[in-house]
């Protein structure tokens, strides 16, 4: 049994005309680093709400199908119970800050779940260390950079020690340096703390070498699901689906189209360098 399992999920928002998810089935294992991509309105954000129970428990609309998280049927659970297992981070950091200090923001969830003071203190220290934000405890989150704000939000989610963190385009409104910081932290959480990462992202170039799996969504369904290496072998189809192609894949596809290259399309610069090195040696 997978940690998260969605079967034939259909969802239409209360005030929407059409279904956003149209019979989506998907399973996610513990410890995976999954990237979900696809063009706008493919249903990526809606899927991310399904992964932590906001759909069907909180967001209004018509839901069909089944979602099981850690072998519990979400329909029979409560948002609070799921929140301790699956944390979620949204796009705009400003809109997600609750507290006027970093400490207040992290403490909020821990108090709600009734942790004692000693545990709260330990969790705050641990979460801030995990996102490399020690020393920021009493700072106002509003005075921090976009990347740092998002790291505070990740720390707030992390303090509950969830098994999975779902991030809905967390770097969309952040500068390149902040973006790199966030992606580095996510990699660290996945590799050092074995936390499952489900990242909704358009910019594939920066994450392709760390992701275990890439899911391409199209019109409310999973269109392609596989390892980055397998997914990026079909560049023309990915372009049709509105996926932002990493330049290295684009270059080798061009070489393939011109008949100058026949091998597998590399997905990272290191792989490309190895191939080019090989070509030169030949």
């Amino acid at each position: 049994m997978s940690y998260i399992e969605l079967k034939d999920v259909r969802f239409k928002y209360e005030f929407g005309n059409d279904e956003v998810l149209k019979g989506l089935s998907l399973s996610i294992e513990k410890g995976e680093y999954v990237v979900i991509t696809g063009k706008t309105s493919a249903g990526k954000s809606t899927l991310s709400y399904c992964l932590n129970g906001l759909i069907p428990l909180s967001v209004d609309g018509r839901f069909r199908g089944s979602i099981r998280i850690n072998d519990v049927n979400v329909k029979e659970a409560k948002i609070g119970d799921i929140a301790k297992q699956v944390g979620i981070v949204f796009q705009n950091p400003e809109s997600q800050i609750y507290g006027l200090s970093v400490e207040e923001d992290i403490v909020f969830a821990l108090e709600n779940f009734g942790f004692d003071n000693q545990t709260i203190k330990e969790r705050i220290d641990w979460a801030l260390k995990a996102v490399d934000m020690e020393g920021y405890l009493l700072r106002s989150p509003f005075d921090l950079s976009g990347g740092q704000k998002q790291r505070v939000i990740i720390a707030s989610v992390l303090a509950l020690q969830p098994d999975i963190i779902v991030l809905d385009e967390p770097t969309a409104e952040i500068d390149p340096q902040g973006k790199s910081e966030i992606l580095r932290i996510l990699r660290k959480l996945n590799q050092q703390h074995n936390i499952t990462i489900v990242l909704v992202e358009h910019d594939m170039e920066r994450i392709i070498d760390v992701a275990d799996r890439v899911i391409v969504m199209h019109e409310g369904k999973v269109e392609i699901d596989g390892t980055p290496k397998s997914v990026f072998q079909n560049v023309p189809r990915l372009k049709e689906l509105g996926v932002k192609i990493p330049p290295v894949c684009e270059l080798f596809q061009l070489l393939k189209d011109e008949g100058r290259y026949r091998g597998m399309i590399p997905v990272t610069l290191d792989e490309a360098a190895a191939i080019i090195g090989g070509v030169q040696r030949d």
Binding site: Y49, N52, L54, S58, K78, I79, G80, D81, A83, K84, G87, I88, F90, S95, Q96, Y98, F108, A109, L110, E111, N112, F113, G114, F115, D116, N117, I120, S156, V157, L160
Partner: peptide
């Protein structure tokens, strides 16, 4: 959505 996911509606004891 954020405060809901951070347990504001959680029925158990709060500290």
């Amino acid at each position: 959505k954020v405060i809901e996911c951070r347990g504001i509606t959680y029925k158990g004891k709060k500290t």
